[in-house]
Simulated scan of single mutants.
Amino acid sequence: MKASLRQKIIEVCDEKIAKKGPTVGLSFYAFFANKNDNPPLLMEAAQWWIVTHELDHFEKAVKIKAMVEAMA
């Protein structure tokens, strides 16, 4: 996974956790604008989320953040 995508995921998770608490869930779409302006990056996130890790559509932000941080 690209470093820029890892950083974006961590930032979004931090924002969601700060606003809604540690039980907040999100999908990989949370890391992108409503307008799909970067299809290759969206597909990279989808591949990691769905194929590589077989995650549910919604997962806890703290779980996703921990998984991404463990990659570094």
Score class of each variant (00 low, 15 high):
V68K: 11
H53P: 00
D37S: 08
Q7E: 15
V12I: 15
S27L: 08
A72E: 07
F31D: 01
K16N: 05
I17Q: 03
E15C: 02
V12H: 06
N34M: 07
A30Q: 12
G21F: 04
V12Q: 12
A72F: 14
E59R: 06
A70I: 10
S27D: 11
S27V: 10
V51K: 02
A3P: 08
K16W: 03
K19V: 03
I9T: 13
F28L: 14
N38S: 12
R6K: 09
K8F: 07
T52F: 05
Y29P: 09
F32Y: 11
T52R: 04
W49D: 01
N36H: 12
A72Q: 04
T52N: 08
T23M: 09
D37M: 08
K8A: 10
A66G: 15
M1L: 08
T52W: 05
K2Q: 14
L42C: 14
D14A: 13
L26K: 13
K16Q: 06
W48R: 00
V62D: 05
A46T: 01
A70N: 13
A45G: 04
L41I: 12
P39Q: 09
K2R: 14
P22F: 05
K35M: 08
Y29K: 15
L42Q: 09
G25D: 01
D56N: 09
L5M: 10
E44Y: 07
A45D: 02
A70R: 13
F28Q: 07
T52H: 07
P40C: 00
W49V: 03
T52Q: 09
I50Q: 06
A66L: 08
K63A: 13
H53M: 06
K19M: 07
A3I: 06
K2F: 08
M67G: 08
L41S: 10
A30I: 11
A61N: 02
M1T: 01
I10W: 13
A33W: 11
A33R: 10
A18N: 14
N36K: 11
A72L: 11
K60T: 07
K63G: 04
M71H: 13
H53T: 03
H53V: 04
V51Q: 05
V62Y: 00
I50R: 08
K8D: 08
Y29N: 12
